[in-house]
């Protein structure tokens, strides 16, 4: 089985979010970038297929050279080879078009993405790819087994979960629970050394235009101070929720 894990390079979850250039861009200064947490679950699942079934695992990202440390980390975790599409990831449609091309060139049986990247929260890349490639697709995937070209996937739904039967070639969008968090792979020294020898192919983007454009960013308005209610006056909280906030 040949697996492609699509990786998004995102600000660490503790990052302070600021904007620059007249609020038209995300300010990356001082920000630590990591593998998108949703993609990390998928990468670990891919390593499981490699260890148990001898799968070949490639990782791909659409991004400029600054994303290479994140890709190297994925290689250190155990991916065999990496592809970087050398372009600024302008919007979800553009990124999906680039990754679809990588899938076409590589002939993958299974493509693992994350349910959304935690920066722009688009959650559209895997679905658009599936549509462009005519591949089966399962979103918010929390379980995946494959046997030959048959696959069983579990997805999270509102208020529960659903088990789906499908076939490879398949794209999934993973998230927490796809693997146990305690099983998440982290790079060790040997992995980091080996990653240096692994191939990181830089490919030019294919012609594609974005479908949307972020014109301006803004931070949420500063929050007013909390209204504190004394622990001995709990009834006052009920009153405030009813007559002031009007939520009960």
């Amino acid at each position: 089985m040949k697996i492609l894990v699509c990786i998004s390079n995102v600000p660490d979850t503790t990052s302070k979010i600021n904007f620059t250039d007249d609020n038209s861009r995300f300010d990356t200064s001082g920000v630590q970038f990591v593998i998108n947490p949703n993609d990390e679950f998928g990468l670990t699942r891919a390593m499981w297929f490699k260890e148990k079934g001898g799968a070949t695992v490639h990782v791909a990202t659409v991004g400029e050279a600054t994303t290479e440390p994140t890709i190297r980390k994925a290689l250190a975790i155990g991916a065999d080879e990496a592809i970087r599409v050398d372009a600024e990831p302008t919007d979800g449609f553009f990124v999906a078009t680039q990754l679809a091309e990588v899938v076409k060139q590589g002939g993958y049986d299974l493509v693992i993405c994350g349910r959304e990247s935690i920066d722009y929260n688009g959650g559209m890349v895997p679905g658009i790819m599936a549509s462009l490639l005519g591949m089966n697709f399962v979103n918010t995937c929390i379980g995946l087994e494959a046997d030959g070209d048959q696959a069983t996937a579990v997805r999270e739904i509102d208020g529960g979960k659903e088990t789906l039967r499908t076939t490879l070639p398949l794209i999934i969008a993973g998230q927490k629970r796809l693997v146990e968090e305690s099983d998440l792979k982290i790079p060790n020294m040997r992995g980091i050394m080996m990653a240096r020898q692994k191939k990181l192919n830089v490919v030019p983007p294919v012609e594609a235009s974005p479908a949307s454009e972020d014109l301006r960013f803004e931070k949420p308005a500063p929050k007013g101070a909390v209204t504190l209610v004394d622990a001995t006056q709990v009834g006052e909280l009920v009153r405030l929720l009813h007559s002031e906030a009007k939520v009960i």
Binding site: P11, T13, I17, F19, F26, I118, D119, Y120, N121, S209, P210, A211, S212, E213, D214, L215, R216, F217, E218, K219, P220
Partner: peptide, 13 residues
């Protein structure tokens, strides 16, 4: 955007 740490005005093209 940014998991509720920001807003974006986005033009659909």
């Amino acid at each position: 955007a940014f998991s509720n740490k920001g807003f974006a005005n986005t033009k659909i093209l």
